[in-house]
Design a protein around this nucleic acid. Structure first.
Length: 292
DNA sequence: CCGCGGGCCTGAGAGC
DNA sequence: TGCTCTCAGGCCCGCG
């Protein structure tokens, strides 16, 4: 599920209760996430202090005093919930909801800050991995990732170069984490709408044959940054799974122009009716009138 | 090298 | 009510 804005929201929620705190006790209730947790997962965390949190694409990184980095991916349905240890019992009307949540709490961190941080993931597409900090650059999961779309180095020239020569669609190219890291189905659709570009357009058409970016590349970069920044400000989008670490919902889904809005009117004055097509086995939403 | 499709899981919602 | 079917925001892998 979670794309860059949701992951960033989760990271910001974890920061105040994890940064500077120590893992006092770790429960690995289920080891069979996307990849099995290592047998010594708990031992490598307990007693270690968190030196800082970061994010790379859709991964959260937790820097540990041991010199290792805890790499976390939320997959499709992963979420964290932070409660105060010992006071996680709730009033009766939340009881059922709480029980349901417990059934998929696969990993629980008890921090010296007093926080109980549970990782919940019904579909278990999420993953956690411990990597030596100096091996992070060589880490296969991170190695092939493209530029951070909100980073300084991401610009029209870079995007055009990554898309140059690609015969595939713009939708597929932007969904490819090697081209730009952190976008998923929602934000690709929204960014293409904002840039007025059709998801079906060939990726290579945002550059000249020699790879020089054109005005489409520029519009796309602006649109990607804008959409991501707005979504982060809104705490991400909550459709099915995403919730913030405090249990509150993100709000950006109320600002979608096209995503999940099949048959509705495009918000643009000269827009048409939002259409849903399938590309690469996934739904694409776009306005055929204003996206060209 | 590239692009495509399958598979991994569970849950929610639609349709019968 | 309950069954079956489809779909879901990700990513890796193997195939051609």
């Amino acid at each position: 599920m979670p794309e860059l804005p949701e992951v960033e929201t989760v990271k910001r929620g974890l920061e105040p209760v994890m940064d500077g705190a120590r893992f006092e006790r770790v429960e690995a209730r289920r080891q069979d996430l996307r990849w099995p947790l290592p047998g010594d997962f708990v031992a490598r965390l307990e007693g270690k202090t968190v030196r800082g949190l970061g994010r790379r694409a859709k991964y959260i990184t937790v820097d540990l005093s041991s010199g290792e980095v805890l790499l976390i991916h939320l997959g499709m349905s992963g979420s964290f919930r932070v409660t105060q240890d010992g006071s996680e019992r709730r009033a009766g009307k939340y009881h059922h909801q709480h029980d349901q949540h417990l059934t998929h709490d696969h990993v629980v961190f008890h921090m010296s800050s007093g926080a109980r941080i549970s990782f919940n993931d019904p579909r278990r597409f999420g993953s956690m991995k411990l990597v030596a900090r100096e091996a992070l650059d060589a880490e296969p999961l991170l190695r092939a990732l493209g530029p951070e779309p909100l980073g300084d180095e991401f610009d029209a020239a870079l995007l055009a170069r990554a898309c140059g020569g690609k015969k595939t669609s713009l939708k597929a190219a932007l969904s490819d984490q090697r081209v730009v890291a952190g976008l998923g189905n929602i934000y690709v659709c929204e960014a293409l709408w904002r840039a007025k570009l059709s998801p079906k357009r060939r990726a290579s058409t945002i550059a000249t044959r020699s790879g020089v970016p054109n005005e489409r590349a520029q519009a796309l970069v602006e649109a990607i940054r804008h959409v991501l920044n707005e979504a982060i400000q809104a705490g991400g989008s909550s459709l099915r799974d995403h919730k913030r670490t405090d249990g509150e919902l993100g709000m950006f889904q109320h600002h979608f122009a096209v995503y999940d809005r099949e048959s509705e009117r495009c918000p643009r004055r000269d827009g048409g009716i939002v259409k849903r097509i399938v590309q690469g086995g996934r739904s694409t939403f776009f306005c055929p009138a204003c996206q060209r």
